[in-house]
């Protein structure tokens, strides 16, 4: 009897925990839709300016989210544009060429890089501006380029790891086919191995995009500001969606601004949801291929 009761407690508690977590998720979503759902529309993004004028840069958007959305978009494109090729190359090296103690040391370093809190990466990016400030005559302050660089440090280990894991999990039969027919190592990698693990690499890239899009701590230290307008150059400060949400939560001046904050939060959640669906589809693709 005694044993039955503690077993029942574990079952109940476990289901309770799961329901608790799902309830929180559901609650967050419903709350954001209720408070921010009404703001969703072209006014939220473009403010009082007509969308066409804003997109053609004929008029500046002051009371819309457009600068923050464009800022985040440019930032993510830049960061992923830097991290993806470098991470891919590093991942290929780790899986195909590195061995022995070099591989051990490198993978330990990537583990540390992956584990570093994002604020530490941000601090490193900030130190980089201080350093550049010392050696270069013209002023380079915190700006879009530095933020993108720091963000690419943040997401690079994910790209390296997903590339490496994907390459290492390719079955031996497939791995040896092309070399047996006379292909070089490079040809084997480029024409057989990489195409074969494209979904895994894309999955890793989507994860990286998600991390880059949601991160606030890194950009907070490397050049994001609350109002900068559309990003005009790589060497200027910029706006970003997650930072805007953070800023509104502490500094909102009137109910309208708060409303926009809720709209922005809902927008970011939906964007991350879309990324999640893409990552999920990619995974289905991988699994189907594995079964085949």
């Amino acid at each position: 009897m005694m044993r039955k009761s503690y077993e029942r407690f574990i079952v109940l508690f476990s289901w309770g925990s799961f329901l608790f977590l799902s309830a929180i998720l559901l609650f967050i979503f419903i709350y954001l839709v209720m408070r921010g759902g009404g703001t969703i529309g072209s006014r939220l993004v473009f403010g009082d300016v007509s969308p066409l004028d804003a997109l053609l840069l004929r008029q500046r958007v002051f009371d819309g989210l457009l600068p923050a959305i464009v800022g985040t978009f440019v930032l993510v494109v830049l960061a992923v544009g830097i991290a993806l090729p470098v991470g891919l190359a590093a991942g290929i090296y780790m899986a195909e060429y590195a061995s022995g103690w070099i591989k051990k040391i490198l993978s330990a370093l990537f583990d540390v890089l992956a584990g570093l809190p994002s604020i530490v990466i941000g601090l490193a990016g900030f130190s980089l501006t201080l350093f550049l400030h010392k050696i270069l005559p013209n002023r380079i302050g915190p700006c879009l380029l530095i933020s993108a660089l720091a963000l690419s440090f943040l997401i690079m280990p994910y790209v390296v790891r997903s590339t490496q894991m994907a390459l290492e999990s390719i079955p031996l039969a497939l791995r040896h086919t092309a070399p047996a027919m006379g292909a070089t190592r490079l040809q084997n990698i480029l024409y057989v191995l990489l195409p074969n693990c494209l979904p895994d690499i894309l999955g890793g890239a989507i994860l990286a995009i998600g991390r880059a899009a949601e991160d606030t701590a890194v950009i907070m230290l490397t050049g994001v500001v609350a109002s900068a307008g559309l990003p005009r150059s790589l060497f200027e400060q910029f706006e970003a969606l997650p930072f805007y949400i953070y800023y509104i939560s502490s500094q909102y001046a009137n109910p309208e601004e708060l409303q926009m904050g809720f709209g922005a939060a809902l927008l970011l959640l939906v964007l991350c949801g879309i990324l999640f669906v893409f990552a999920f589809l990619m995974e289905q693709l991988i699994q189907r291929r594995m079964l085949r």
Partner: peptide, 30 residues
């Protein structure tokens, strides 16, 4: 070409590995 590609891959891996150490050194120096 294949030698070049190995160099590029190695550079990417070593470069980003060294980055981890560079972050530490930067913080130490400031």
């Amino acid at each position: 070409l294949s030698r070049l590609s190995v160099t590029v891959f190695r550079l990417a891996a070593f470069g980003s590995g060294l980055l981890t150490i560079a972050v530490f050194l930067m913080m130490l120096s400031f």
